[in-house]
């Protein structure tokens, strides 16, 4: 009986101790949190420094505007599969596209290479503009099909699959047409950006060589 009472008292003490520690921790946390977020931020400006700071802000705003791409440029959202042709802050055209599937292809024999079919993210520019493009099938296209890799270039060339136009943006990646129009809006490609015929024609005609491409 006595032992039982001792145990109950110990349990009650432990529980009260836990509550006290938790309460203390909570109060300390609340005290810290009450000082945040700091309103205003930055150090105070004296009247003497005011013109200098205003000038500095104006210069920084001018510099930021200077970073914007000049003329038409392309923005591609790989998550939503959307392509935007923009001029300054205005959207000139929106197109539903297909971006990389994110699938990994592994070569079981041979060199045991590995490919990740992602559309590359970053800042690019239009490096080539091609009418009636042919697809020079890379090694992965044959490996994926379970076919042997041909020796000659002529065996790699395939017409019609890339649509009527292609805009190259480096490292073998293109914005091109597609036969698989039902899959526009989905992530299905090997890294290139597929666009419907009408949109592709308009983009090809409007966007000049060297125009910036932002893929995110």
């Amino acid at each position: 009986m006595f032992v039982k009472r001792i145990l109950i008292a110990a349990a009650a003490l432990a529980y009260l101790g836990f509550l006290a520690v938790l309460g203390a921790a909570y109060l300390i946390g609340l005290k810290q949190a009450s000082a945040w977020p700091p309103i205003g931020g930055g150090r105070a400006i004296g009247n003497k420094d005011l013109p200098k700071v205003e000038k500095n802000v104006q210069q920084l705003e001018k510099r930021m505007i200077g970073l914007l791409p000049k003329g038409l440029y392309i923005v591609i959202d790989t998550a939503e599969n959307r392509l935007y042709v923009k001029n300054g802050k205005d959207v000139v055209r929106t197109a539903v596209v297909s971006c990389g599937s994110g699938v990994v292809l592994e070569e079981s024999g041979g060199k045991q290479r590995k490919w990740v079919f992602d559309t590359p993210r970053g800042e690019f520019s239009v490096k080539s503009k091609i009418t009636n493009p042919y697809w020079v099938k890379p090694d992965w296209a044959f490996i994926e099909e379970g076919e042997s890799i041909p020796k000659g270039l002529e065996d790699r060339i395939e017409g019609g699959t890339l649509g009527d136009y292609a805009l190259g943006f480096g490292q073998g990646f293109f914005i091109h047409g597609t036969l698989y129009t039902r899959l526009l809006g989905r992530n299905v490609t090997h890294g290139c950006v597929r666009v419907g015929d009408e949109d592709l024609k308009a983009i090809f005609k409007a966007v000049p060589m060297g125009a910036k491409i932002y893929i995110y």
Binding site: L50, V53, E54, L60, R63, M64
Partner: peptide, 16 residues
Amino acid sequence: DKADLAKKQNSLSAEY
């Protein structure tokens, strides 16, 4: 206004 200006300067500078 001064505090806003100071904050704007800091954020613009960091963003640039």
